[in-house]
Structure formats: C-alpha cells, structure tokens
C-alpha cells in the first residue's frame, strides 16, 4: 500500500511540474495559435538564469521565481514584438520554422556561454525529505508541486476574473470580434506570449534544484509538454492540468515497473491510446482558455 501511495504521490508531484510547463505552451497556442517550438529552450534559459542568480548572487531558486518570471516575461514580449508579430497572419509554416529556429539559436547561445557541462545547484534542502501520507517525499519536489499549483490557480483567476483575462479569452475565441469591442488584439497577443514564456520561467526556477542544467535540457521537457497539451486538448486550460498529471503518474508507474528510459515509452503508449479514443484530446473539441 505504502509502495503504491509512494508511486502515485511521486507521479502527482511530477505531473504538476509537467502541467505548469505545458500551460504556458497551451496558452500561447490557444490565444495566438502559434505552436512554440522554442518552449523548451525558454525553460532552459530560465534554468540558467536561476542557476546564475544562485551561483553569482546566492539567491535561492524559490526567491528567484519572481525575478525569472519577470525576465522571461520581458524576453517573451521582445521576441514576440520583434520576431513573431511581423509574421502573424502570413504563412503559418513560417512561424513554425521561426520558433524552431529560435530554439536552435538559444541552445547554441547556451552552449557558447555555459559550455556543454552539466550544472547543478546545491541548496540546503536539496537532499531533504519529509514524510507525507506515510511516504517519504523530496522537499524540493513538494515545493515545486506547491508552486506549480499556486501558479496555475493564479493564472486561472487572472484569466477568469480580471479585465485583461477576459480580453485574452475574447481574443482567443474571435480576434476580429475582439477588435470590434475595442480590444487591441496585437497587444493581447504580445502580452499572452510574454505570459506563456513567463510561466515556463516559474517552472524553470522550481525545477532547477531537481534537474541537471545543460543547453539541451529543454528538449525532453518540450516533448513532454507537447504530449501533455495534445493529450489534454489543444488550447484547453483544464486539459493541460489533467494531461500533466496523467503523464506524471504514468511515468512514475513506468519508472518503477521498468526503468526511467522505458517510462517515457509508457507515457507515449498512453498518449497514443487516448488519442485513439479521443482524437481531439481529453478536454478537446473547440476547448479554449
């Protein structure tokens, strides 16, 4: 029983991280209809920023959450304004290639500045564990879970209860009608891109105490977030949460009954199975934020 609980708890903790990474990707897709192939690289940039803040200024990853969020929010806004905005409304394929290209550029810049070394940050709580429901849980994973859930709740509140959130939802559903209401759709697109990238910055800060940091660290997370988003339903906020938890739990179970490498195979199998049953994802079919 304890063993089973351990797996499920690990899966849920992991799932929340996946969900938070995916929500940013999904928000950008749901509103701007851009598939952001550089998403994993924004995560990587966030992790290096957290690393730098920790190693140069001694700022704890949890304290660097707001800093990394703001820095990536601004980075997202600049990238969107300068590079992506001019391409909107033209051939969709160009934007796809551009975001993929940006990812490669970011990876190589990271390689240039940080070399291909694996970095790790050692915090006082890195190895700490606490007991939860009779199982031992890593403190940094529990912390990551709490922050991820909090961030998702705050985002949900902003989207559902604030004026800017209502504008974002309106633009997501019908940008032209939103313009008729006096909403500057371009501005909303830019803010949304910044928000999506900022959210992945939060994810980056909280996983830095858990994972190694290296220039291509974004790739595996990128793959996972694409799976999560498609699994949950493109553009659906709830879908990304549910998808995150499913993949997290499947990977935790898969990792126990076989090895960590095979865990990914299990999640891909579940992914294929769910797509077979529900081609538009769990919360799919026109689901939007």
């Amino acid at each position: 029983m304890d063993f089973f609980a351990q797996i499920i708890i690990n899966g849920i903790l992991l799932g929340a991280i996946y969900a938070l990474i995916s929500i940013g990707l999904n928000l950008i897709f749901g509103v701007i209809k851009i598939v952001n192939f550089a998403h994993g690289e924004f995560l990587m940039i966030g992790m290096y920023l957290t690393f730098l803040l920790f190693s140069q200024s001694g700022i704890d990853p949890y304290l660097s959450i707001p800093i990394v969020f703001v820095l990536l929010f601004v980075l997202g806004i600049l990238i969107h304004k300068i590079i992506l905005q001019p391409l909107l409304g033209k051939a969709e394929f160009n934007i796809l290639l551009t975001t993929a290209g940006l990812g490669i550029v970011f990876q190589n810049l990271a390689l240039m500045f940080f070399k291909s070394d694996y970095r790790v940050i050692q915090t006082s709580y890195s190895a700490a564990k606490i007991e939860l429901f009779g199982t031992l849980v890593s403190v940094s994973r529990l912390g990551a879970f709490i922050v991820a859930i909090l961030a998702a709740v705050i985002l949900y509140f902003v989207l559902m209860k604030t004026r800017i959130g209502m504008d974002i939802r309106a633009v997501s559903q019908d940008p032209e009608a939103a313009v008729l209401m006096g909403i500057n759709d371009k501005k909303i697109f830019t803010i949304t891109f910044g928000l999506g990238v900022g959210l992945v910055g939060i994810a980056a800060a909280i996983i830095t105490p858990i994972y190694y940091i290296f220039p291509t660290v974004g790739e595996s997370f990128s793959t996972i977030s694409f799976i999560v988003v498609v699994l949950g339903g493109l553009g659906s906020f709830h879908g990304a949460l549910i998808g995150g938890f499913i993949i997290g739990i499947v990977e935790a179970i898969g990792g126990i009954i076989s090895s960590a490498e095979w865990a990914r195979v299990f999640s891909l199998l579940i992914f294929l199975f769910i797509l077979f049953v529900r081609p538009s994802g769990i919360m799919g079919k026109n689901a939007r934020v």
């Binding site: 209502m166 939802r169 309106a170 559903q173 019908d174 032209e176 009608a177 939103a178 313009v179 008729l180 209401m181 006096g182 909403i183 500057n184 759709d185 939007r288």
Partner: peptide
C-alpha cells in the same frame, strides 16, 4: 485611427453572424 480605437470614438458594429464570444 487604428481599428481598435474606433469603438472608443463611438462607432459600434453588430457584425454579420453575431460573432459573440461563445465561451464567455
């Protein structure tokens, strides 16, 4: 004036096909 400023000038269009925000 950019398009999104025009409603603020007092112009309002009820568009063809209604164009409501279905999930609002």
């Amino acid at each position: 004036y950019p398009n999104y400023e025009r409603p603020k000038l007092g112009l309002s269009l009820v568009p063809e096909g209604r164009r409501l925000f279905p999930k609002l």
